[in-house]
Each structure stands twice: as C-alpha cells, then as structure tokens.
C-alpha cells in the first residue's frame, strides 16, 4: 500500500499533522458550537419525550464515534500486523483514549436520557450491556498498549487484542434488532430516518464537529507520542556516550 506508506516516515507525517491539527480542532469546535446552539434553541421538542430529546445531539455522535474509534483501532491493528506500518501502533494508542471517552459520554448521556424516558438510569439490556463492554474493552486496550510500549514491545500483542475486540461492534449494532431490548431500534439507516427532519438536522453538524475534534485529538496524541519517543531515544543516546 504505497498510499499508506507515504506517511510511514514520521517526519513527513508530522509535516502534514502539525498544520492540520489546529484546522481540525477549530473547525470541529465551531461546528459543535453551532450544533449545540441549533439543537438547544432551533429545534422543536419531541411530542412524547419533550425537551429530553435534545440529548440525542450528544448521545448519537458519541455512540457512533465510540464505535468508530474501535474501527480505527482495528484498521491500525491490521496495518501493523500485515504491513508493519511504523505509525500504526501509535495511531491505535492515540485513538483508544478519545474512543473510550466518547463511549463513556454515550453511556452517561444515555443514562440521563433513560431516567425521564424509560423511568430507569440503567438496565442490563443487550444494547446497554454491549456498549458498557466496549468501554471496558477500551480500558483494557489502553492498559495493554501502554504496558506493551513501556516494555519496548512493537505493539503486536495489543493489535491482536484490537482485532479480537471488533467482535463487539456488530453485537452492539444488531443487539436491538436481534434481541428484544429496552433500547429502541435504529432510528437512522442508510436511506431512511424515523426522526422528523425538523429534529434531525443539527445531528449531522454535531457528528461532523465531533469527528473533526476526534481527529484533532488523535493527531495531538500521535504527535505527543512521537515527540516522547524522540526525547527518550535522545536521552538513551546521551546516557551511553
């Protein structure tokens, strides 16, 4: 894959990542601000849920990015195991933390929505439980990848874990279809949505804004990890002289 290996050189990656980081960050921040303003003031309440419906503007993008983050870890893991891409291990580690944070945001906002809507903060239904498992798997990956990096590993052990963890993604997606759950079925498919357009429209803005912020955080973390590796290598060199 020549296109991927164009970024194999950390110096070349940094040359692109450095100017890209603030662009992604500020664009994302502005879009999230617009989305929040629109979602809080410009859309009507739902006919049943009332104002609680507005939580979906945070909850749904957080859920998608929580799952999208693990897809990123899986892709990085494949790039590491198959092509030995030198940035893949760092990319997976960089994605893991924001992914876990978004999964946690999804769980917390869902719980806050569930109290007034369902009448409960938490129930062990298929969707809620599988999403909680994804959060735990993120935590395990973060610990494993850090331990592996600390003892000088090349990231192959966490990469295997990253691929195995993808088992949760279809389970989360189809839990509400295959099992009867307290959580409702999917509102948004590829071609249809059962959310009225008047309520739906800020959601893509929020999704894009959160995605750009996610990208900015990943780039910042990758740059920080590369800088750390560089400084450690320099310290080691100085110690041996």
């Amino acid at each position: 894959m020549p296109s991927l290996h164009a970024f194999a050189n950390p110096a070349r990656f940094l040359k692109i990542a450095r100017p890209l980081t603030p662009v992604l960050f500020w664009l994302g921040a502005v879009l999230v601000a617009i989305g929040c303003w629109a979602g809080l003031t410009q859309t009507p309440p739902d006919y049943l849920q009332g104002e609680t419906v507005r939580i979906l503007y945070i909850h749904v993008p957080a859920a998608w990015l929580g799952m999208g983050g693990w897809s990123g870890i899986a892709l990085s893991s494949i790039a590491l195991l198959v092509w030995r891409h030198p940035l893949a291990a760092i990319a997976a580690r960089a994605v893991a933390l924001p992914g876990a944070v978004f999964a946690a945001i999804c769980l917390v906002t869902g719980s806050i929505w569930g109290r007034p809507t369902w009448g409960t903060w938490w129930q062990w239904d298929g969707r809620l439980t599988s999403m909680l498992l994804l959060f735990f798997v993120y935590c395990a990956f973060i610990a494993l990848a850090r331990a592996d990096a600390d003892r000088g590993g090349d990231g192959r052990v966490p990469a295997v874990f990253g691929i195995a963890g993808t088992v949760l993604l279809p389970i989360i997606r189809y839990s509400v279809v295959w099992w009867n759950t307290l959580h409702q079925g999917p509102s948004i498919g590829l071609t249809r949505s059962s959310i009225a357009p008047a309520i739906l429209w800020p959601l893509p803005i929020m999704l894009l804004g959160f995605s750009l912020l996610f990208g900015a955080i990943v780039l910042m973390r990758m740059r920080a990890m590369l800088a750390m590796a560089k400084s450690e290598a320099r310290l080691r060199r100085m110690a041996t002289v």
Binding site: T43, P44, P45, D46, Y47, L48, Q49, V53, L56, T117, W118, G119, T120, Q123, L182, Q184, G185, P186, S187, S194, I195, A196, A198, I199, L200
Partner: peptide
C-alpha cells in the same frame, strides 16, 4: 413491581404528531 416505558425509534415535533 416496577414499570419501564419503552420508547420507539420515532422522533417528531408535537405539531406533526
């Protein structure tokens, strides 16, 4: 001993519903 309301996947503004 306890009731939970199950919400469906439809979201509508009141005037539409």
């Amino acid at each position: 001993t306890n009731l939970l309301a199950k919400h469906d996947e439809k979201y509508m503004p009141p005037e539409l519903a």
